[in-house]
């Protein structure tokens, strides 16, 4: 229930109505949304039990390594209800054709694959917020100084997931494990997203806010 309360309000992409609906507008909208989402993710992380007990340097290392996993997990969860469409925001849904035009085919295929995995598991909101918090603490950053403290947080959240599933689905002892086994695909998907954003940045021409650039470069 703590994680449900910590869940941020939804963001809107608000594509610029004065710009023609082109690949350029799609990419600009996407990068602007990602930047605002980052601010929200950083604020959200502070509400995850124990996160603020990490040193400031370790909070930074953790977020720098997992922010895109947290972001992608949110997008995949929002896309559960739509096959072959990726719901970056309620007012910013990209189908296969729009993705192709914007050069986002690979990213959208990857997020759709993750969403299919969650759909097959019928992941609900409680499980989504648990997984997102676990993904935060599942960092493998080599820059973390006190890994034991991060491991403790991870264990705490893992235990909470086990208890949740034990209460709600005592007939399905594999449920928690099945959810955790989606984390490798989440990491792979975030890797695809990083490649996509990095090549948008390298090609240039799409405005990117400072925080977004800072995190991409980290």
């Amino acid at each position: 229930s703590h994680l449900l309360v910590a869940e941020p309000e939804k963001l809107f992409a608000m594509p610029d109505p004065l710009q023609p609906d082109t690949a350029q507008r799609t990419l600009t909208t996407l990068c602007d949304l990602a930047d605002r989402e980052l601010v929200v993710i950083i604020g959200w992380a502070k509400h995850i039990p124990g996160f603020l007990s990490l040193s400031l340097a370790d909070q930074m290392s953790v977020l720098q390594s997992v922010w895109l996993e947290v972001l992608v997990l949110g997008v995949a969860y929002r896309s559960l209800g739509c096959e072959d469409e990726v719901v970056f925001a309620e007012d910013f849904v990209l189908d296969e054709e729009m993705s192709r035009v914007a050069g986002l085919t690979e990213l959208n295929a990857a997020i759709s694959q993750l969403a299919r995995r969650f759909r097959a598991l019928n992941v609900d909101r409680e499980e989504f917020v648990m997984l997102k918090a676990i993904a935060l603490t599942n960092s493998d950053s080599v820059y973390i100084e006190d890994m034991e403290a991060v491991q403790k947080l991870r264990d705490l959240l893992h235990q909470a997931l086990l208890e949740l599933e034990c209460q709600r689905r005592p007939d399905d002892p594999q449920r928690a494990g099945r959810l955790l086994l989606t984390l490798p695909l989440l990491r792979q998907t975030a890797g695809r997203a990083l490649n996509t954003f990095y090549s948008i940045k390298t090609r240039g021409g799409v405005p990117m806010h400072k925080l977004f650039l800072e995190m991409l470069e980290a």
Binding site: K46, Q59, M60, L63, M215, E217, A218
Partner: peptide
């Protein structure tokens, strides 16, 4: 940390 100024600031500040 100098390179990651905004993240540093957002984590240090209140919500």
């Amino acid at each position: 940390q100098e390179k990651h100024k905004i993240l540093h600031k957002l984590l240090q500040n209140g919500n």
